[in-house]
Each structure stands twice: as structure tokens, then as C-alpha cells.
Amino acid sequence: MTDLPGIILAGGRATRMGGGDKGLREIAGERLLDRVIARLAPQCAPVAINANGDPARFAEFGLPVLSDSLPDHPGPLAGVLAGLDWAESLGAEAIVTVAADTPFFPSDLAARLRAAAGPSGLALAASPDAEGRLRQHPTFGLWPVALRDDLRAALDGGLRKIVLWTDRHGAGTAEFASDPFDPFFNVNTPEDIETAERLIA
């Protein structure tokens, strides 16, 4: 039996960043992916990257690169499905996913997601926004391998919005504090890189 595999979702097109792989952008002298791997590896094993295109650009990380099994980049759920298919081949029962552009996610993410899992085994992370409203972060989740065929059917049927599917399966919510800043802050723009560097400093 494998431990809890971790999947880094790096399949986005980074349009607000001018294209390319956001995970390869540097923040304070270190690539985003290096920071994400360093946070995820103590929590999950093994770790893989979900990305499309030539996997060789990630070769130096030494991790498996999983491409979407569905065409036309249908979004993060396709990356989740690729991770679930990989985990099934390992004999694992679930995976944890994180986004490649979020360098400060909690160091107890996996444990808290497991503790919050709903009846189906699903859980999503959430944190309060500036107004105190709880906001889900659907790319940070615990996903049971047992639901992979259901997810594949939903994607084949045109579903793209993560929470529509997770709500259907009664996902639990793992709540994280946003003090002193939201740990799910993600880097979408060049200005966000400056913000992240200030947070690191």
C-alpha cells in the first residue's frame, strides 16, 4: 500500500503572466515549483506533476509528469483525474492536489484534509477572504481513487466546474486561517510575484 500521493496541478496556461509555465517562474531566487515541492513532499509520497506538452521541461525535478487523459485542456479536474489514474496504478486509495502557483499553502494541508473528509472521502481546503467569508480553494483537495470513474464520466459529459462535482459527492471542508495572510495566495500576475517576494522577506 502506497502512502498518500501528492499531485501538483501545473496544467494552466498562465495567460495573465504572459504564457509559459508559472511553476518555472522565480520568486526570491527560487522557482515556484521548487517551493511547492518542498512544502508538499513532507506531507505526501510519492509526488507527481500534472502538466501537458513536452514533459522534458520538468525533467530536472525528477518527478513523474502526468498529462491529461482528455483532450483540449478541460481544466483542473482533468489533472485530478490524471492523478487518480496514476494513484490507482500504485494501489493508493486517495490523492492530495495542490496548485503549482501557490507557494505558501499550509504545511499540515494533507493531514487537515484527511481529518475533514466527507462520507465519500472528498475534502476541499477553504480560508476566509478579506470580508471574513469562507472561500473554497478547489485545486487543494483530497480525492478518493474510488470516484475516478464517476469523475471521468462527468468530464466526458462536459462538467468543468470543480465544486459542482465535489458538492454532488458531499465534500468536507478543511478550514485554514488567513492570518497573517491567506496561505492560498496564488501567483497570477507579475505584481503577484512582487507581493510573494515581500511575504517571503
Rank of each mutant, 00 (worst) to 15 (best):
L151W: 00
L113G: 03
M17L: 13
P64Q: 09
F140E: 11
G20W: 09
R133E: 14
F105C: 08
A177N: 07
T139L: 14
A153M: 15
P103N: 00
R112S: 10
D3N: 13
T195Q: 12
L40S: 12
D149P: 00
P190Y: 07
A201K: 10
F104I: 12
R16N: 12
N186T: 06
W86I: 01
T15H: 09
I49L: 13
E60R: 04
I200Q: 04
R152D: 14
S120T: 13
V80N: 07
S120F: 00
R198Q: 14
L40A: 03
A177C: 09
R160G: 09
L151E: 03
R112Y: 02
A56H: 03
W165F: 15
H137I: 04
T2Y: 07
F140A: 05
L124A: 10
A116S: 13
H169Q: 04
V80M: 08
I27P: 02
T189W: 09
M17N: 02
A38C: 10
G91C: 02
K161Q: 06
F140T: 00
R133V: 10
D167A: 11
R16T: 05
G62Y: 11
P55Q: 02
G118R: 10
R25Y: 08
I193F: 07
L147N: 14
V96P: 00
G6R: 06
F181D: 08
E60P: 15
A82C: 14
G83I: 07
S67Q: 12
L109P: 02
A196L: 04
E30R: 15
A99G: 04
V98Y: 03
A110N: 02
A82K: 13
P71F: 09
A94V: 09
S120W: 01
A45P: 04
E30C: 12
V80D: 01
R160W: 06
G132T: 06
W143E: 08
C44N: 10
A92E: 09
L66S: 00
R31Q: 15
V163E: 07
A45K: 10
P183D: 01
G29A: 07
R16S: 10
K161T: 09
D72V: 03
A171C: 07
L199W: 03
